[in-house]
Nucleic acid binder design. Structure first.
Lengths: 131, 131
DNA sequence: TTAGAATATTCCAAATTTAGAATATTCCGT
DNA sequence: ACGGAATATTCTAAATTTGGAATATTCTAA
């Protein structure tokens, strides 16, 4: 993955927020939409942009497209995401986005366990008791 | 300075090479031109772009425009520049650019001491015996 | 005040990015 | 096969970025 591609993705607040979410674990498009409060096309296109640059990847799970960060994580991307998240106030949405993500996943699992496993918590989730 | 501005500057190899040079000390446009091997307009425009984003600044010194990184350095920018420079092969030009910079400055000072002080070595230069 | 050096700007065209509306695709359940 | 849910794509238009050629500006030295 080209380092310029990583910087291009990070240079837009919407994309940064998406990457911040994905760094906590895979997510489907509709959840990203709901957390960001943006429309379907807009989110889908940002994901496509980042996918073409190789910064995110996607797999299909029934009706859902599950987006995630490639494994292993690129250290350049990971370092920047951690830095920005740690800086309170740099991008205020990053923290609340993660909170919304957890409540969404919890709520989805309580409502019906039938959601694709990939979007529930997995080993990449830093929060042990998230799910 | 917006963090998105920093990422926009870093997302282009030409701009990254310029920032890498400036992180070693201030430089005038003609030296940047010569090191990068690019034309005047192109370099001037990239500098203007970065100046408008607040990532670099400029002062006039006689006929020369001296570009530099604002002091204090933004940690986000500095960290990324150091990381990329340390990764051999990520952007092969970064190291040789710095070498060219030093030989240019040495050569300029030997030829005539009349060059603007700002583009000779100053306290921001990491190399003690550069000038 | 004039010539020349260093740099910036303007004019113009191509390429990229961004986004909404409408439409299409893919997959599931029935 | 059909309808609906989740997502992608196409069409279209605006905004941004990029770069070259020509020109303008700013300063110095004589």
């Amino acid at each position: 993955m080209e380092f310029t591609h990583i910087f291009k993705c990070l240079s837009d607040v919407q994309r940064l927020r998406i990457l911040n979410l994905l760094s906590a674990g895979p997510l489907c498009v509709c959840h990203i939409q709901e957390i960001l409060g943006e429309g379907q096309v807009k989110v889908s296109k940002q994901l496509r942009y980042m996918k073409e640059l190789g910064v995110v990847e996607a797999t299909r799970e029934a009706n859902w497209m599950i987006y995630s960060l490639p494994d292993p994580r690129d250290p350049l991307l990971e370092t920047n995401l951690k830095y920005l998240l740690a800086q309170a106030g740099v991008e205020p949405d990053l923290l609340s986005d993660l909170a919304k993500r957890e409540s969404l996943l919890l709520q989805a699992q309580k409502r019906d366990g039938g959601l694709p496993v990939a979007i529930t918590c997995d080993e990449s989730c830093p929060d042990e008791d998230c799910c």
